[in-house]
Design a protein around this nucleic acid. Structure first.
Lengths: 338, 338
DNA sequence: CTGAAAGCGCTTACAG
DNA sequence: CTGAAAGCGCTTACAG
């Protein structure tokens, strides 16, 4: 790799060195147009000799579109989102796109800012990975983005009502299956801990739980604990339930982090998992496999998700219809906690 | 917020609407130059009415510098790095800078690619947060970056030998203190598990451990387990040690994730923490507080780190001297595992 | 204090 | 197949 001491190398210098016009260099660089093999060779040689790399800002300005994708994650403090970020970044890098990262952090203000910013940046694409329910108020921004040629995709939350192609999990179906598994062991008093209010994904997960519980005739609102997102929430929920004297023999958690918090609380009260209370998490964080007892959970596949996202930004379509949905199925990962 | 249906609004339209020249709009926008209050008002009104936001690519091209910072993290799969990413993104966003994220993932090729890319992008700044030892071969790239006006800062690893200001932890001192704590309880057979080979930070942590053990006259190379970075590494190290029949009563882990893996392995073998083996981790991941027993660990402060980084990119200096170092001290977070 | 003009580094019709 | 020229949206000397 050549590292020029002077300012960055531009097309002009490559053209001069190769003895061709700027246009030719550009054509070779972009590969699409026809260039005589001889010239092509000269240009390639010059590019290599000079260590030339095109200026993305100039390219972006001229093309009216950058080559970066903005990813908005709901809450980078949750392991699920950082894992997603990792895979999305890797997948995009593979096809030469850059990732600009934003964190919504459960703030509507930030969501708004994100769209404004994305709008002014002529992004190649925008990926929204939020668990919080996306408010209808952002519809005009999405429309504007799309009109301006920015591709928009949703990860995790079905946003087809805003004409946004979405890659989602079968949340309700998987929590339903999971709760059925708990029920099959004879347990009836199964609690749900997680965020529902304001959380589209949490609400879906809860929906599956409720369906299974109702089908078994043992749904009890007292066992529904609408809490926040992470460890502390799971612990507090269990502590409060125990303090209230609630009886329960199973917990379906809205995330592995919540499940881990719940397990800690049970352990602190001298209760044992799974004999006293069985627990199932959500998301299959690596951590869960190292808890003792190891956490039974519902799988996730950030890599597959990222692949779909990449394909979308590359090809311009997740599927064909107006706003396609791709659904990734979760499976129950059996470990010791249930 | 105005969302124009047509293409993005440019300075030209703002100027027309305000009845002034492009230059004036630009001056108002940039705030630095003198503009008559009357004009300023007209421009502000037009900007607001139109919902104008400058095109960052055009600005960047013209100024020869973008307003985004590239962050290269060593391994986004480690919680430590995702937490850092979160805080750096937040801190930069506060001052209007964008974050472009890259993951090194222990690949030298990627490190190289990162520098090439950063070089062509006229970044405002570049932050390198790697635990792997940065090879001398990147020195010319760093120099070129700096010559081109891109600020470079290192997070976690002292890179002042490359004239890169660095924000680091007192790794050796903190692991030394931590091991002394373990020794003070009368334990002599204390193992170190973590990555040393190829890891600048791991090597530092090990150095503190070794110093403490040697000072106590009980350093034993058999108790030094050079492993990879995460849960599985910690578990495997303990399993192998147990299989070999090694006796040990304490473990200083190179990360909380490694510590959690080690704890799981001990638990699986029916050993108890801390009575049989005391464990101390590194980094104070939230997870550790929810393990049972809760993990004693060395604190970290991603937020403070991010603040220093922000200040650097804002003011152009971490300190004054050629390549300053800021050291953040870790403290021992006492919990049940030690 | 303000405007007209040049130019950042590219790409892409437009001629040839 | 190739080159000269225009222009993407800004900012900043340069005049006035």
């Amino acid at each position: 790799m050549k590292v020029s001491g002077k300012a960055t190398i531009t097309v002009t210098e490559v053209a001069r060195k190769a003895g061709v016009s700027l246009a030719t260099v550009s054509r070779v660089q972009n590969g699409n147009m026809t260039v005589a093999p001889v010239m092509r060779e000269k240009v390639h040689a010059a590019i290599k000799a000079l260590g030339y790399r095109p200026n993305p800002m100039a390219q972006g300005l001229r093309k009216g579109r950058s080559n970066t994708v903005a990813l908005l994650v709901g809450d980078l403090a949750q392991r699920h989102f950082s894992e997603l970020t990792l895979h999305v970044q890797t997948a995009l890098e593979d096809v030469g796109m850059d990732l600009m990262l934003f964190n919504q952090g459960h703030s509507d203000l930030r969501l708004d800012d994100f769209f404004r910013r994305a709008m002014s940046m002529s992004m190649r694409g925008v990926a929204i990975a939020m668990s919080d329910t996306v408010p209808a108020s952002i519809q005009p921004m999405i429309k504007a983005l799309q009109k301006n040629g920015t591709m928009v995709v949703s990860i995790g939350q079905n946003l087809t009502r805003f004409a946004v192609p979405s890659v989602v999990y079968d949340e309700a179906a998987s929590s339903c299956r999971s709760v059925e598994y708990l029920l099959a062991s004879g347990r009836r008093r199964i609690a749900y801990v997680g965020r529902m209010k304001g959380s589209a994904i949490g609400t879906e997960r809860f929906r599956g739980y409720k369906a299974a519980m109702e089908a078994a005739g043992c749904f009890d609102p007292e066992l529904v604990w609408d809490r926040k997102y992470r460890y502390a929430a799971g612990r507090a929920a269990v502590e409060d339930a125990l303090a209230k004297g609630l009886a329960f023999t199973g917990i379906q958690a809205g995330s592995d982090e919540i499940a881990a918090g719940a397990m800690a609380a049970l352990s602190d009260r001298g209760m044992s998992v799974p004999s006293d209370v069985a627990i199932i998490g959500f998301g299959d964080l690596e951590m869960g496999a190292y808890l003792r007892p190891a956490l039974t959970t519902l799988s996730s596949d950030a890599k597959a998700t990222a692949e779909h996202v990449r394909r979308f930004f590359e090809d311009g379509a997740v599927g064909e219809s107006p706003s396609p949905v791709i659904t990734i199925e979760r499976s129950l990962v059996h470990r010791d906690s249930a």
